[in-house]
Simulated scan of single mutants.
Amino acid sequence: MLSAQYVAERQRDIVLSRDDGIDAALAAGAVQVLLAPMSAAAKCTGKAGAPVLAIPLGVDADGLPFGVTLFAARGADALVLQAGAWIENLIGERMHWQP
């Protein structure tokens, strides 16, 4: 059985990451998909149960990999995949990271 403290903290996580987080940002921007630097949204998306797609874009001036993360409201998996496909087609060939 789950402790009352765990249940309360989980509910708080959902409100902060989903209701007051992703869903609020989508509504404020009147958009369906959000974009953030890769890994910047990891905690928020995981706690919210939101679909997320990381797209590697290339390497920076120091030769380190970088990319973007797309995410949307819970249940909008197909929309995130469609947006990701559009971005990948737009970007085309990318530089590959070589350690």
Rank of each mutant, 00 (worst) to 15 (best):
M1Y: 13
L2Q: 11
L2P: 04
S3G: 15
S3A: 09
S3D: 10
Q5S: 12
Q5K: 12
Q5L: 15
V7C: 02
V7S: 12
A8F: 07
A8E: 14
R10G: 12
Q11W: 01
R12E: 13
D13Y: 11
I14S: 03
V15C: 03
V15I: 14
L16N: 12
S17W: 00
R18A: 13
R18K: 14
R18I: 11
D19Y: 08
D19F: 07
D20T: 02
G21P: 01
G21C: 04
I22G: 08
I22N: 06
D23Y: 00
D23K: 00
A25P: 00
L26V: 08
L26P: 01
A28W: 09
A30H: 10
A30K: 11
V31A: 13
V31D: 10
Q32A: 05
V33W: 09
L34K: 09
L35K: 07
L35M: 15
A36R: 05
A36E: 06
A40Q: 09
A40P: 01
A41T: 02
A42E: 09
C44H: 01
C44M: 15
C44W: 05
G46M: 02
G46S: 13
G46D: 07
K47D: 14
A48N: 10
G49L: 14
G49Y: 06
A50N: 04
P51A: 14
P51H: 12
P51S: 14
V52H: 08
L53Q: 00
A54W: 07
A54G: 04
I55C: 01
I55T: 06
P56V: 14
P56D: 08
L57S: 08
G58Q: 14
D60F: 15
D60Y: 15
D60T: 15
D62S: 15
G63Y: 10
L64R: 13
L64Y: 13
P65W: 11
P65A: 05
F66C: 07
G67P: 10
T69P: 02
T69R: 02
L70R: 01
A72Q: 03
A73F: 00
A73Q: 04
A73C: 07
R74F: 03
R74T: 06
A76K: 08
A76L: 04
D77P: 08
D77F: 10
D77I: 02
A78P: 04
A78K: 03
A78S: 05
A78V: 12
V80E: 04
G84K: 00
G84Y: 02
W86N: 05
W86D: 05
W86A: 07
I87K: 10
I87M: 14
L90A: 14
L90N: 02
G92S: 10
G92W: 11
G92P: 03
E93P: 01
E93A: 12
R94C: 08
W97D: 06
W97G: 04
W97P: 03
W97Q: 07
Q98V: 13
Q98G: 00
P99K: 09
